[in-house]
Each structure stands twice: as structure tokens, then as C-alpha cells.
Design a protein around this nucleic acid. Structure first.
Length: 211
DNA sequence: ACATTAATTGTGT
DNA sequence: ACACAATTAATGT
């Protein structure tokens, strides 16, 4: 855990803070698909991503999902922070996109560290900033782009996050995350295949060239 | 190796 | 959006 922490956060945090994290943080490893946070639940600790990726989803009143953004290594969930400070419930759901390693920090430390360590304040601030930008991107996507462009972006992003040019998902799953229907996704994927951008197989999609 | 079944994907209305 | 056909993967014998 020491190495993991230093490699990913060493340049961000001063040594004293690193040591404190090591004292109170617990190391956690979760498999792909693990639900880290559920809508409506309270959160008692905040995660620092060490490796892997986490997807953050919103859900509407019908239980339909929408992918908001991905969290990568070196990042944290800003929802957790808002939520912990205000003692409110989570507005989002977080699921491990790949096998993921994290360090969990008890929330009580957050206040303390914010005043004690400049690097922590910066980190929290930066993190908000990044999440907000990611969100703006997805909002743009939804508001101004058609489904085919959204799908394209989704595939690109997914390939990047997973460092894998093969997407291991069914059309149905993709449809859920983009808040669309399976049939629509299938048809759009088919178009992309005909254009030579991808190869369709059962349970996975191979990316040839998305540009 | 083959047959059966279940799940995913394709297509027309 | 729905219904159904076709295809593929998984499983048991």
C-alpha cells in the first residue's frame, strides 16, 4: 500500500500527509462490477483511486441509468466529498469498471486535512474542477449530439479507460449506460461495422478505427 | 461430438 | 417500440 500510494499521489501530497493517509486509510481491492456506492446510501469514507477505473451513474425515477463519467487512478469521487460534508445521501451510484484498487479514508479526516495541508485542499479543489468538466462534456453530448455520436464517444472512452480495444459488453448493457434501447444501439453498431470502424461479435466489440 | 437450451443480436413492420 | 428470426455461446449427455 505504501508503494501504491507514493506512486500515484507522492508528487501531489507532502510526506506528512502521506504518512497520515497510511495511518488511517485502509487498502481495498474490488473486482469488476463491484458496487462501491448506491443511490440513497450514506458514505462513511472517501476513496482514493490507485488503479483501475470506476464508472459513476445517475438513475432516474424509473430506475433507468445514465453514465455520468469515469474515475481513473489518481482521482477521487467529488460526490463523496459533498455528501460527507453535508451528511446527505448519495445522489449517484458507483460501480467498478475494471478490477480496482483503492485506499479508503475515513471522512472525519477530511475537515482536518483541509485546513492542515495545502496539497489536500488543492487536490480536493482540482478534483471538483475535473469532475465538473467531465460532466459538462457528457451534458454537451446529450444535449447537442445525436445518439450515434454519443455511442462513438462512449466506445472511444471505454477503450481508453480499459486500455483495451475490445469492449466486453452486450448491446443491452451499452444501451443502459447511454440511456437508450438495445435495438437502437444494435442498429448504430451495425452501421459502424459496415463502415469498417468496428467488428461485432457476441459479447464483445472489437474496435478497428474510430476516426 | 452432438443435442438442447439460453442469451444475444438482427431485421421488418 | 414490438415481435420474431437468426445466430452464437453454454451446458449436459
Amino acid at each position: 500500500m505504501v508503494l501504491e500510494l507514493k506512486n500515484n499521489y507522492g508528487h501531489l501530497f507532502e510526506d506528512a500527509l502521506i504518512n497520515e493517509i497510511l495511518e488511517v486509510g485502509t487498502f481495498k481491492e474490488v473486482p469488476e462490477g463491484f458496487k462501491l456506492m448506491e443511490i440513497g446510501s450514506y458514505i462513511r469514507s472517501m476513496p482514493l483511486l490507485v488503479s483501475g477505473a470506476i464508472k459513476v451513474l445517475r438513475e432516474d425515477h424509473n430506475g433507468d441509468e445514465l453514465l455520468l463519467y469515469y474515475l481513473e487512478k489518481g482521482e477521487t469521487c467529488s460526490m463523496t466529498m459533498t455528501c460527507c460534508m453535508g451528511q446527505t445521501k448519495s445522489e449517484i451510484r458507483a460501480i467498478a469498471e475494471t478490477d480496482t484498487k483503492l485506499i479508503m479514508i475515513p471522512v472525519q479526516k477530511m475537515d482536518l486535512w483541509s485546513s492542515k495541508y495545502k496539497s489536500w485542499r488543492n487536490f480536493v479543489f482540482e478534483s471538483y474542477h475535473n469532475r465538473l468538466n467531465e460532466m459538462l462534456n457528457t451534458v454537451d453530448n446529450i444535449a447537442f449530439h445525436n445518439m450515434d455520436e454519443r455511442l462513438l464517444n462512449y466506445l472511444k472512452e471505454k477503450a481508453r479507460i480499459n486500455k483495451d480495444n475490445t469492449i466486453h459488453n452486450t448491446h443491452q448493457e451499452i444501451a443502459y449506460e447511454l440511456h437508450s434501447s438495445r435495438v437502437v444501439i444494435s442498429r448504430l453498431l451495425k452501421k459502424l461495422e459496415n463502415r469498417g470502424s468496428i467488428e461485432l461479435h457476441r459479447n464483445h466489440i472489437k474496435i478497428i478505427n474510430l476516426d
